[in-house]
Nucleic acid binder design. Structure first.
Lengths: 222, 222
DNA sequence: GCTTGATTCAAACATGCGTTTGAAATTACT
DNA sequence: AGTAATTTCAAACGCATGTTTGAATCAAGC
């Protein structure tokens, strides 16, 4: 009786795994190649599944992609939220660092936790039908948070200065993804381990704090 | 005799145009959709040519793309060189502005002069076999020039600070291309006319000059 | 053990896309 | 005008890719 239950449990565990294996494989392939260039046969081969399994478990490639986006968002935000390491009495400067650091980690870390940053980076550059949902649920809140941090750093700044500074900060971070090919070429020693990413975050934060303090602030207009 | 020559000239002019029309159409389509997603049938339709014309005039899609890259580079650099508006006695600050302004114009201007920035932006994010040549002939010189400008602005700065600052500056500019979908969503009033582009260049330059002056400069280390 | 539902499978299907082919049309030259 | 070279054409080809199909296998329940 006891042996039979154990045997049955093992079988359940085995058969529940195809869907998971597909998600895992798809996460890697989509992050690496994007939606368009990702090939379902490659995903299935990586997952050890038959090509019809995508239709069976997800309906089609697009829905698999959506499932991967959701899973990757949850994973990334759980591991690297924009509030990474903050406390209730953190300064706006510290908040900016946390935002930048977490964003860089979500994009540049190795493996699953960084699928999301890569997927969103791809959607920014080449939107698919998923962009709308990504923007609404994932990007809008992020830009809102950054905007709030900047407003605390330069009270009274103009709308344009805040907007452009947000773009400047996110642009610096995302360039390590969007421009990875040229960075690899021009700065071959650029590493992406935890210390490297932190150093980048320090640079972007410091660079941006100084840039933020520049003109376009009506109270300081010359 | 005179009528016949004129008639013949018109005919020559007409028949030499297919290749030109293909280049023009391909420039638009590749800039809009990138190499992979650009469809030769669309290019030929836009050019008013038969699909076999690409093979006849260029050999294949890849060679058409290479021809477009060359043409677009020449056009862009002729109209918006990184030395745009500079004189012999321009300051490094002015040099930085010119670099940023020209880069933004090459990416954001309307039509043919901006194919190049868009094509290179796509190659950065998703390299094709053309990347190597683009990097060698077009990106390396650009990063070298920027690096030279920055070295004049912050003499004695560390290698890392200069490298990261180059990345920060180019990243800010390229984000208006790589992140155009999210910028359109989050900042819908962001325009891209000449005055808008100049204002962006002013912002990026000012932001970056301040950021450049921050730490990591051994002479100013605290 | 039998039946039903779930899951997987191999093959086929339908479509899109870059390229090729051979003929027709056009152009250039004598 | 005739010939050769160039250019264009419509159709076909070859391949890749997402999706579908119907059968086989597996699992669950009685």
């Amino acid at each position: 009786m006891k042996d039979q239950e154990k045997h049955k449990g093992d079988q359940d565990k085995q058969h529940g795994l195809t869907r998971q294996r597909l998600l895992e494989a798809a996460g890697e392939v989509f992050a690496e190649r994007g939606f368009r260039d990702a090939v379902v046969r490659d995903i299935c081969e990586k997952a050890g599944a038959n090509v019809a399994a995508i239709n069976y478990h997800f309906g089609n490639k697009q829905r698999l992609y959506s499932a991967v986006l959701k899973l990757s968002y949850e994973t990334a935000m759980r591991k690297y939220p924009p509030t990474l390491g903050l406390t209730d009495d953190s300064t706006p400067q510290e908040q900016l660092f946390a935002f930048v650091h977490a964003l860089l980690l979500r994009v540049l870390d190795a493996g699953r936790p960084a699928w999301h940053g890569k997927l969103v980076g791809r959607e920014m550059a080449e939107p698919t039908v998923a962009f709308e949902e990504i923007a609404r649920d994932m990007l809008d809140p992020l830009f809102l948070r950054l905007r709030g941090i900047l407003a605390k750093l330069v009270p009274g700044a103009t709308e344009d200065h805040l907007n452009r500074s947000c773009a400047s900060i996110v642009g610096q971070c995302m360039f390590y993804y969007h421009g990875r090919a040229v960075i690899h070429r021009v700065y071959p020693s650029q590493g992406y381990g935890p210390a490297d990413i932190e150093a980048l975050a320090q640079h972007v934060t410091r660079f941006s704090l100084a840039g933020l303090a520049t003109a376009d602030n009506p109270h300081k207009k010359k």
